[in-house]
Design a protein around this nucleic acid. Structure first.
Length: 256
DNA sequence: ATGCCTAATGCAATTAGA
């Protein structure tokens, strides 16, 4: 079973790139982030024509998450992270797909720090940690997949000293990531590639991709029942180098 | 410290991204 995550940065503007990559990679399940489209503007027909069932939570202009599946129909279990009924951002969607619970998430960026956006990021992270504990306690096979907007360690950023005060690399954000991980989650990419430089995002600015000035911020976290089934974990970085690319590359894992 | 680039909105210039 191959599960992928891809922050598309605009699902409609990115549709040709997305369809080409789906055809090439043929993942079984895909979590998408930053749809940047209202609910009614999701390209449902094109996704179906490509062979995928889809559920999505859209939002005008920003955010937006989706789960695609070419096997079983995703059975939605949750839309929106519990813990704050006033949070209207479309950042979390969860579904059972072929016996695995898939949580697709888009954690807030949080810049500038300090400020209300950073406070929102930390609060959102606390809600994710609380929900993560429930998911671990369920003993179900669960995958948290998506854009976490966190570089966990210095190995995950091209120039750590430049990012230390940034909301993606601040000590309290990295600490939150490891509190989540310490519940028993497995960081799939880092586990299979402990010493590699792995990036999933390259800024549009400053020719970042050509300079390989990247960040590892898109992650797969596996619950204990899945940890032993992890076979592969890769970044399709060539997609980032293509025409009209998102600033993120697709990332995927393979489970036995 | 800011701009560098890109997308969405909506038709100019702003907001947001990371």
């Amino acid at each position: 079973m191959m599960i992928a995550t891809y922050n598309v940065n605009g699902v409609n503007g990115r549709l040709p790139v997305l369809l080409r990559w789906l055809e090439e990679r043929q993942p079984d399940v895909v979590c998408l982030q930053e749809l940047k489209a209202p609910q009614e503007k999701f390209p449902e027909a094109a996704i179906e024509a490509a062979g995928y069932h889809a559920i999505w939570h859209g939002q005008k202009s920003w955010n937006g998450v989706a789960i695609l599946s070419r096997g079983g129909v995703p059975v939605e279990t949750r839309r929106g992270l519990p813990g704050d009924p006033d949070d209207l951002h479309s950042r979390y969607i969860e579904a059972a797909v072929d016996g695995v619970l898939i949580a697709g998430l888009y954690l807030p960026n949080g810049n500038p720090r300090p400020g209300p956006k950073f406070d929102y990021k930390l609060a959102w992270f606390e809600r994710l940690i609380a929900h993560g504990a429930d998911l671990i306690a369920s003993n179900m096979p669960v995958i948290l997949a998506g854009d976490f907007n966190v570089m966990p360690t210095e190995r995950d950023v091209y120039k750590p000293e430049r990012w230390i005060d940034d909301a993606l690399f601040a000590p309290e954000v990295r600490a939150a990531f490891f509190r989540l991980l310490d519940q028993g989650w497995t960081d799939a990419l880092r586990t299979l590639h402990p010493d590699e430089t792995i990036y999933t995002f390259w800024d549009y600015f400053r020719n970042a991709y050509a300079r390989n000035a990247g960040l590892r911020i898109d992650h797969f976290l596996l619950s204990p029942p899945l940890a032993g089934k992890l076979k592969k974990a890769e970044v399709d970085r060539h997609v980032r180098g293509g025409e009209k690319s998102s600033d993120h590359a697709p990332v995927w894992i393979e489970l036995a």
